[in-house]
Design a binder for these strands. Structure first.
Length: 285
DNA sequence: TGGATTTGACCAGA
DNA sequence: TCTGGTCAAATCCA
């Protein structure tokens, strides 16, 4: 989650404390969830799996909000609704907008344009000295939740079937699952991992891909409760993220930190090494 | 028929 | 002045 994010330079001590509290809370919920998976009979007196999943998502959402300084999704949603009402339909206002400067951006070179989020294409441009046009996408929840995330997708010119994807802004929209988390218990399966079935954001969890090459939006994975496609917990932990993303470059405004993150979460690592030591947690700024 | 995409127009910023 | 980012009407499609 947002490992390429660069936090604001001026984060108050109160925000730092709140951030740590949110992350610690998320860790505790994740720990309890792990215990739940290991031994569901020991859950008396603890939160239900639904509540735990909800709390984890809430903690991470609040943490991201603290890091990025964005307003809450609720406020954004109300403001977006108002601005949408006011938006003039006259042709004279076409193209009238305020460019977003110093928005947090990061670029990804990927073999796939799928990232688990639902995007709406709003433009395409032929870029100077580029063979392929650049497509512009915004979050489909821009208007109902005020999510300001956008991305630009452009085929790389080196002949490989890879895409340069530039993300601008972070998602402030809430996945549907946060409202109504669903845990499905597969009583018929003897698979130990088959306890939890749900849909995750992520390039490997898309089950539907559009057939037209230029239609690059993800049309199916709009939220965690969209149960049109269901994956098992085994699917989650066996996913190898390292295949999809090769390089990540984190940028804020004009200054870019070339992070080049190699994401390689193996199933075994996720199972055995999913540890979160509070004493190890430090704010790197 | 409603949501998604296409595409030309318009505007901001370098 | 040029290039790139966004808007919105037209069009497509399930």
């Amino acid at each position: 989650m947002g490992s390429a994010s660069a936090p604001p330079e001026t984060l108050s001590s109160n925000k730092k404390r709140a951030l740590i509290e949110e992350l610690v809370n998320g860790k505790h919920c994740a720990t309890q969830l792990r215990i739940l998976f290991n031994n569901s009979s020991e859950m008396s007196g603890r939160l239900s799996a639904q509540e735990l999943v909800h709390n984890i998502f809430t903690s991470f959402h609040h943490s991201l909000s603290l890091l990025t300084g964005v307003e809450s999704a609720e406020v954004s949603r109300i403001q977006a609704t108002d601005s949408r009402k006011k938006r003039p339909a006259s042709k004279e206002k076409r193209g009238c907008y305020k460019r977003r400067k110093a928005e947090q951006t990061w670029a990804v070179v990927s073999a796939t344009v799928e990232d688990g989020h639902a995007w709406r294409k709003y433009g395409q441009k032929q870029i100077l000295n580029s063979k392929h046009p650049r497509s512009y996408f915004r979050c489909t929840r821009k208007y109902d939740q005020g999510c300001r995330a956008t991305k630009q997708v452009q085929r790389t010119d080196d002949g490989s079937q890879t895409y340069q994807i530039t993300y601008i802004g972070t998602h402030t929209c809430r996945p549907d699952s946060v409202k109504t988390p669903q845990i499905i218990k597969d009583s018929e399966s003897s698979e130990p991992y088959n306890i939890l079935s749900k849909k995750l954001h992520g390039p490997h969890f898309n089950v539907k891909q559009t057939d037209k090459e230029e239609r690059t939006t993800t049309t199916t994975t709009s939220g965690l409760t969209d149960m049109d496609s269901v994956i098992t917990w085994k699917d989650i932990i066996s996913a190898d993220y390292g295949n999809a993303v090769s390089n990540v470059y984190s940028c804020t405004g004009t200054t870019c930190q070339n992070l080049k993150l190699d994401i390689a979460i193996k199933a075994a690592e996720f199972e055995d090494e999913f540890q979160f030591d509070e004493s190890e947690f430090r704010l790197a700024y």
